[in-house]
Structure formats: structure tokens, C-alpha cells
């Protein structure tokens, strides 16, 4: 049997849960730990926190958030964003995260994957690949939430991170992220067939049909979803607009529903995947 994983991805900026399009134009949606706890109660399989700013001065607020979250949930939590050293990894794991995700640090110094896997075990180390398709149809990798381009072929890089000891790959399609146009099937298929480690497809999910498509047409057995989840649950989360001081909060203050995404629940998403796709229900 294989039970596919539905992973809730939460982009974090300072104290807030945010969401953008193509990893940019961030909107503040609320308190991450409030959403996280609700998702766990509703049956999400794992959580993934991505610190999208990852500046050093906000480090302690991220660690506090990890502690707070880890104390209230008992399913796996992966944390990524701004991890530069084994010491950073150590701090995040000590705060209660179960896995860490790296991108920029791995590209700048691939050896960090090997070193981290040796100390913490491969299964603790997730490598994030932020990819985008060039004019010649080749996918290359980016860092810093899609801001910095590296002339590295995404498939070659995926194989290399596997050889260095990564336990999982989180594959983000920058082209599709936040757009709701479905996953990038082509690159997900190519990468999930090129490596033997699990691949998590991320970027573009709007409906259960998108999830079925990527889990049946590629070797990925896990998806990370965010817009679909956050907008699906927005009205269930108690909004207290006075708590939102930072960033682009107009969206929340006006209490606009994001029309493109249906109100949904995790159990409804999971049921809609049956009978083709099994998950923990």
C-alpha cells in the first residue's frame, strides 16, 4: 500500500502567515499557528513552514513559532528558509521541528547536504528545488523565493542532491505557484522519475483534480498545498484584524474572500481523491 501525503504549506513572514503569487506579492492571512492547529485537527498529513524572509533578526520569532506549533501538534513539521549552517539546523530541530528544508545554502555549498545527512540522518534533510522553465523548455533552479537565477539544470541538480544524501525533494514550480493553474506535470514527472527519493509536488494546486493529476501522472506521492487550503479555510479561522500590523494587510482587513478558490475542507479534498489516490482518512 502507499498512502499519498497531503502537506499543508505555510509561508511565514515575521509573525504572519502570508501567501503570494509566483512566490511574490505577499498577502497577510493570519497567525500561522492558528491555521496549523486547525489543519492538523482536520486531518492534514504534515506541515511545512517556509520562512519567506528568513532574515537573521527575525530568527528568534521563527524559533518561537516552531516551539509554539510543535507544542500543540503531534504530526511532522518541516521548516525551511534561511538555513545556512549546521548550527541553524540544530536550533530549528531543537525548537521542535522534525525535518529541515534547504535551498540557497545547498546550491552555494552542496557539501552541506552531505554533512547534515551524516549528522541528522537523510530523512531529516529536505532539499527544496524552486524551478522555472526557460524559453528553451529547460527547467533551471532559483533561490531566494524565486528571486535569484542559477544556471543549473533542475534534473541534474535533483540527482546530485539525492547522491549527496537528501531524504526528500520539495519541488516548487515558480511558474505555477499561487496561480491555481495546476501542478507543472512535465517537470514533476521528469524529476520524480530521475531520483529514487520521495518528491513532493508543489505549486499551482486549486482543486482535487489537480492533485489527482500530479499523483497519477508522475512518481510524486506527496503534494504541498497552500492557497487551496488557506482560502478554503479563511472564514473558519477567527480573524482579528487588530492583530495584523505588518505587511500587506488590506486583504484581511477588508475581509475579502478569494473568489477563485472554493471553500473546502481537508477531508473533502481527501475524499475527492478516492478511489484512485489513497491517503490517511
Amino acid at each position: 500500500m502507499i498512502y499519498n501525503r497531503i502537506i499543508g504549506r505555510l509561508d511565514i513572514k515575521g509573525p504572519n502567515l502570508v501567501k503570494g503569487i509566483h512566490l511574490e506579492g505577499l498577502r497577510v492571512l493570519g497567525k500561522p499557528d492558528v491555521f496549523a492547529k486547525l489543519y492538523v485537527e482536520e486531518g492534514i498529513d504534515e506541515l511545512f513552514y517556509q520562512d519567506v524572509v528568513a532574515s537573521l533578526y527575525e530568527r528568534n520569532s521563527l524559533l518561537d513559532l516552531i516551539k509554539k506549533t510543535a507544542n500543540s501538534i503531534s504530526i511532522p513539521l518541516t521548516v525551511g528558509g534561511g538555513i545556512r549552517s549546521l548550527n541553524d539546523i540544530d536550533q530549528i530541530l531543537k525548537s521542535g521541528a522534525d525535518k529541515i528544508a534547504i535551498n540557497t545554502a545547498a546550491i552555494k555549498n552542496p557539501e552541506i547536504i552531505y554533512q547534515a545527512a551524516k549528522v541528522y540522518g537523510s530523512s531529516t534533510i529536505v532539499v527544496t528545488l524552486e524551478v522555472s522553465k526557460l524559453i528553451n523548455n529547460i527547467h533551471c533552479v532559483y533561490t531566494d523565493n524565486g528571486r535569484e537565477f542559477w544556471d543549473i539544470n533542475a534534473i541534474d541538480w535533483a540527482k546530485r542532491v539525492e547522491n549527496l544524501g537528501a531524504g526528500e525533494i520539495l519541488l516548487t514550480s515558480i511558474d505555477n505557484e499561487g496561480t491555481g493553474k495546476g501542478f507543472d506535470i512535465t517537470i514533476t514527472q521528469k524529476i520524480s522519475e530521475s531520483v529514487n527519493i520521495p518528491v513532493i509536488a508543489h505549486g499551482g494546486a486549486k482543486t482535487s483534480i489537480d492533485i489527482i493529476k500530479v499523483l497519477t501522472e508522475t512518481q510524486a506521492r506527496a503534494v504541498a498545498i497552500s492557497s487551496m487550503l488557506h482560502y478554503g479555510y479563511l472564514d473558519k479561522v477567527q480573524l482579528n484584524s487588530s492583530n495584523y500590523e505588518e505587511g500587506n494587510t488590506d486583504f484581511i482587513k477588508k475581509n475579502i474572500n478569494y473568489k477563485d478558490y472554493a471553500k473546502t475542507s481537508i477531508i473533502d479534498i481527501k475524499k475527492a481523491l478516492l478511489p484512485k489516490i489513497l491517503t490517511r482518512i
Binding site: 500500500m1 501525503r5 498529513d45 529514487n196 520521495p198
Partner: peptide
């Protein structure tokens, strides 16, 4: 067998 390793996720 050609399985994805590590085995990560929920199982019975």
C-alpha cells in the same frame, strides 16, 4: 524492488 526510499509518510 524499485521503491522510493526513504519510506516517508503514513502507513498502517
Amino acid at each position: 524492488k524499485n521503491l522510493k526510499v526513504p519510506h516517508i509518510g503514513w502507513n498502517k
